[in-house]
Design a protein around this nucleic acid. Structure first.
Lengths: 337, 337
DNA sequence: TTGAAAGCGCTAACAA
DNA sequence: TTGTTAGCGCTTTCAA
């Protein structure tokens, strides 16, 4: 591992000059010196020391990707295809932008702040953050931040959110269910805040528009532990609920629900219809293939990085609250009744 | 962001003393000084600067996780549930061990070397590395390395591999297929090296043991682009191949194959039997539920980190080549004929 | 066109 | 029990 100083000695020139050549500030360096230095860099395979650079420039080239899902220690979060798909996309985009990705799944908010200052990250991308935590962090961390799928009130200048037309997506799928003749539609979400809350609003709007009454009673939250979904399904099987259709806010939940239903001898969509949200690999591989709302996680990731880089460069983001479009995908899990 | 020096000034003591207190080297520091310093640390919310620390100690506390799949830019790799599950597990274990995880998906081997020295990582965990590349890196990178799922010849002291009983897994599932009356069994892998090759060997052994002839012709490699799997399935549908069963080396491929088969009007397992490998969320959510070979990606990750930490601490690994057990999981995708 | 020098924040050897 | 000092590798200002 050769250093700038060593190379300077070899070439017989000062470290400054070597540094300048490395950074392409060659306007004021003679052709020969440049050549010599470049040859040495090549020959000795010089690789810059990022720690030293970070220390000197007060900019680390690290982008922190914070993923906080309700207990990532639980298998659920990691099983969610969304997690892998977006991490992969983020890594690629961050790398191509000349940065490096540090992945951090904190146990609490303090952890995030600590992490960000420890490493002096140049920016942060945050997924799965509770609105309150999000605003808290935004105030304390003096770095550009891009949220993914967050619903925060306005809380600062240097932040952007990349999300979905959640309300509209839920509205469309619910409307579709109604058009297929369903009046009693159960809503299964995860935590009832943020994204889930918005989707519940879309669901409610569709029902209201069709003069169908619904209440918070029709909102079921799985949360953790996940086994609660099984209990819920049992109640459906036992006719404690009279739903003819279920809208679940993720394909993962939808697939799991179908598994439980099948286990109790109920057929989808013959006995009950099911719709999901995401359109990930589960939707096309389960049976019946799932009617769901499509989103594009990779696009989310790409835009998030794009915007973060803008913020880091001191440019204004194009838009502070980005809502990507969704698309209703009709397959086989909903029956007309 | 307060620094050690600043705190030293506040307390009226030297940076060394503050540093010592921070690191718990308090044997030779007076009670009062410790108290005072701790109070300041608390009050000013001191967070160490990792770059500075790395520079001074020549140890970064960064563990590089290298994931190189055949073009991660292609959706396939990221869609693989394995990717998300193991990244999540690695992050957790690395964090709990007091390190930080940098994720890097290189385009070539040089990239890996460059990455490792740039950040002066304390260790590397590598997935999806081609055997040749693996050995190359091991020689050049002077850091502890743990491979996951690699098949390399012995190439150094400071490395460990965490893998599976791949040969045995493939053997068991093939044996099971044979016991169900199948004689013509197609093998679908990805690249025909490493893991896939071992599985092909297990498959061959089972066939040989039952006096069934098989050749390299029965080995089909999907590789990229993935559409090739569709072509293969078409040939089956058109009876160009006379297979009554298919063994695919991942659940992802198995599920995809079932989709293609269904699209052409073939039923699984009535018309053709299918078995996979992984036992991930696809296996239980697809229909028919998949007969497959179970592995535990989280365990793989956990052990990988465990061993890497041992190496970093200069301890000998317990075992250099770890092969985790597999388990045949019988579900509904194979018919007795 | 080039270089000297200071400094980023922290650690560690050694001295006091 | 505490402090001085040098140095990790790089950047940057300013001078030559």
């Amino acid at each position: 591992m050769i250093t700038i100083k060593e190379m300077a000695d070899i070439v017989g020139v000062s470290p400054t000059t070597v540094s300048n050549v490395i950074h392409g500030k060659t306007k004021e360096v003679s052709k020969e010196t440049i050549e010599k230095i470049k040859r040495v860099i090549e020959e000795y395979n010089y690789v810059p020391n990022m720690s030293a650079r970070a220390l000197a420039q007060n900019s680390s080239k690290i982008i922190g990707v914070i993923i906080k899902y309700p207990s990532l220690e639980n298998r659920h979060a990691v099983q969610e295809p969304f997690f892998g798909e977006i991490s992969g996309e983020l890594e690629m985009d961050i790398r191509k932008a000349g940065y490096f990705m540090m992945l951090y799944c904190p146990e609490d908010v303090e952890g995030i702040l600590n992490f960000a200052t420890k490493w002096n990250v140049d920016g942060l991308i945050m997924l799965g953050i509770h609105p309150n935590d999000g605003e808290r962090i935004l105030k304390l961390v003096r770095k550009p931040v891009v949220f993914i799928d967050a619903y925060l009130k306005e809380a600062g200048e240097d932040f952007v959110n990349v999300g979905l037309e959640d309300e509209e997506g839920a509205y469309q799928v619910t409307k579709y269910l109604i058009e297929q003749g369903h009046r009693r539609i159960g809503f299964v979400g995860n935590d009832g805040i943020g994204v889930d809350r918005k989707r519940f609003e879309g669901y409610s709007r569709a029902l209201a528009e069709h003069g169908i009454h619904c209440s918070e009673n029709d909102l079921f939250l799985v949360g953790l532990p996940e086994e609660r979904l099984d209990d819920y399904i049992k109640k459906i099987v036992l006719r404690e609920y009279d739903y003819t259709a279920l809208f679940l806010t993720s394909d993962y939940y939808a697939a799991t629900a179908v598994n439980f239903l099948n286990a109790y001898g109920m057929r989808v969509p013959e006995d009950i219809s099911v719709a999901g949200f995401d359109d990930n690999l589960l939707a096309v591989n389960m049976r019946p293939k799932l009617t769901t709302v499509a989103q594009n996680p990779s696009l989310k990731g790409r835009i998030a990085v794009e915007q973060l880089i803008r913020l880091i460069n001191g440019e204004r983001p194009k838009q502070k609250n980005i809502r990507l479009p969704i698309r209703l995908v009709i397959r086989d899990s909903v029956k007309k009744i």
